[in-house]
């Protein structure tokens, strides 16, 4: 099965439709599928729901799809860096489902593992627990959270081989593996596609079984908060 495509638009060909649920990897602007997001913008597809930890900033990441009003709903844990997001949400144009970060990651991972729901202590006694099933295990209260089964997953990795085995780099791994796992189809963008056989099989972070289409491209890899220390 050929997985390697020439560019982001070709890799998304036939996969996009209005009203779909997309799971995206990334934490802040780190490890986000920036090329695929740009291609989704160019496609003009609309009313999208995004399961993504963050919503990018105004001019990068998912933020570019908020500018064009292609997003109907976000399922996220933290959206504090995006002024356009805040404006659309407070004016009622954009739906928002806040998920605790670990619950969001586990909802993706669980769906990818065929687990439709799981119990967690996270959020008990808060608004997150309202309307959810509560259950006691060994005297402690837990709530039921459901897996996120996405129509499409878009992720970014550092390296891939031609069979879709992925290797991530440092903290750019973040939500990419669970996001990749929870979609019916997963498209990955990487900085370098290497010949099959040149990655150490013991060092694969996400096996190619989860990755259906693949592109290599130039990444901006923008830094959100540049912090440094002085040399002594």
């Amino acid at each position: 099965m050929k997985k390697v495509y020439a560019n982001a638009s070709e890799a998304l060909e036939g996969l996009l439709r209005d009203d779909m649920l997309v799971a995206s990897g990334g934490f802040g602007l780190c490890g986000i599928p920036e090329l695929l997001l740009e291609a989704i913008k160019q496609s003009g597809v609309k009313n999208l729901t995004f399961a993504s930890n963050n919503a990018g900033v105004d001019d990068f990441g998912i933020g570019i799809l908020l500018q064009t009003k292609q997003v109907k709903k976000m399922i996220s844990s933290y959206v504090g860096e995006n002024a356009e997001f805040m404006r659309q949400y407070l004016s009622g144009e954009l739906e928002l489902e806040f998920n605790p970060q670990g619950t969001l990651a586990e909802r993706m991972r669980a769906a990818g593992c065929g687990i439709p729901g799981f119990y967690t202590k996270t959020g008990v006694g808060t608004v997150i627990a309202e309307g959810k099933e509560h259950k006691e295990f060994n005297g402690e209260t837990y709530i039921l959270e459901e897996g996120i089964f996405a129509d499409l997953s878009i992720v970014k990795a550092w390296k891939a081989d031609e069979t879709g085995n992925l290797v991530f780099r440092k903290t750019a791994r973040n939500f990419n593996p669970p996001a990749a796992m929870c979609g019916k189809v997963c498209v990955a963008e990487v900085e370098e596609i290497v010949p099959t056989g040149s990655l150490d099989p013991d060092g694969i972070h996400l096996p190619g079984i989860y990755v259906h289409r693949l592109i290599q491209g130039e990444h901006e890899n923008r830094i959100e908060q540049r912090t440094v220390r002085q040399r002594e």
Partner: peptide
């Protein structure tokens, strides 16, 4: 740009550093 903390600030790694995904992190 691939090495940030939860506040999205650039940081560094140590000799003992290990990386993992968000699901394992919250696990």
């Amino acid at each position: 740009p691939d090495l940030i903390n939860a506040g999205k600030q650039t940081i560094t790694e140590l000799k003992r550093t290990a990386y993992f995904d968000s699901a394992q992190s919250f696990g």
